[in-house]
Design a protein around this nucleic acid. Structure first.
Lengths: 140, 140
DNA sequence: AATAGTTTGCAACTAAGTTGCAAATAATTT
DNA sequence: AAATTATTTGCAACTTAGTTGCAAACTATT
């Protein structure tokens, strides 16, 4: 277990267990968003289905990862950047989903444009989903 | 069965059946987005679960309704406006989901802002999800 | 090293969604 | 308007996704 990963878990007041470390490492290596199924595949039979569900849930609660809404209704999870904290998710992200390879990127550094709503509506958060062809698929 | 509803179905080359007409009417009355569960509740035991699934699927294919991605992973369906046609959905919508009452509105007439992506990424469509408090909840 | 607190895996369950097929309904033809 | 054809529906059975309770295993604390 990498000390860096243990640090992250401790910082969120979570005990450093095999499964948590492994799943967190997966996210760091991938760099993109993952589904529950992705993680189940990549970890093989190492951990129980239920453990993966619970780990993802805990990570979301602690602000380590966040969920991404998708059109095809598969829940995607991705690492939060430092500005994400407990109870404060989903806001102001731009997510890019490749039509070709389905890889999902968090584009945290892109400015989100201002959206004007009709009278009577007040905004608390915005999620922007962009579809298209990703850098990787374009280069090949 | 209203003739207007029959018209809509015929226009999409669908035979006008009880279930289709009833479900389409539901959407028109609601004016907001509905989930499969909403429809199952509102129609009672009138139609089989499977029929509702298939009807929604058909409506999406024919461009009568479109799906809305949500953070909590419940598939929402809403009536398409006239500019929506078969095979051409999801693009350039703004959807507003109320934090309080969970009602979902399609804000079709709001301009979607331009989004600039990093080099190598090309956009084919955009889905914007806005959370907040809706007009209705604010007035009360 | 022993104890207290947390997490995991298992089993069993609920909920969501899909598929094949015979019966019922809608559209078409005569 | 009756008969034929094509489409749609409901049922049953199934797969997949997600949840819950609880004893055993593991982490953290003393």
């Amino acid at each position: 277990m990498k000390t860096e990963i243990i640090e992250i878990l401790k910082r969120s007041q979570l005990s450093a267990t095999e499964s948590r470390a492994a799943i967190l490492a997966l996210f760091q290596e991938a760099g993109t968003a993952l589904t529950h199924a992705d993680i189940e595949k990549k970890t093989g039979a190492l951990f129980d289905r239920v453990t993966i569900y619970r780990t993802l849930q805990t990570f979301v609660e602690k602000g380590i990862i966040h969920t991404i809404p998708t059109a095809d209704n598969a829940i995607l999870y991705a690492l939060c950047k430092d500005n994400c904290s407990e109870g404060n998710h989903h806001d102001n992200h731009i997510h890019f989903i490749c039509d070709n390879c389905s890889t999902t990127y968090c584009l945290d550094h892109i400015n989100i444009p201002e959206i004007k709503l009709p009278k009577g509506f007040f905004i608390s958060g915005t999620d922007i989903l962009v579809n298209g062809i990703c850098k990787n698929c374009n280069d090949n």
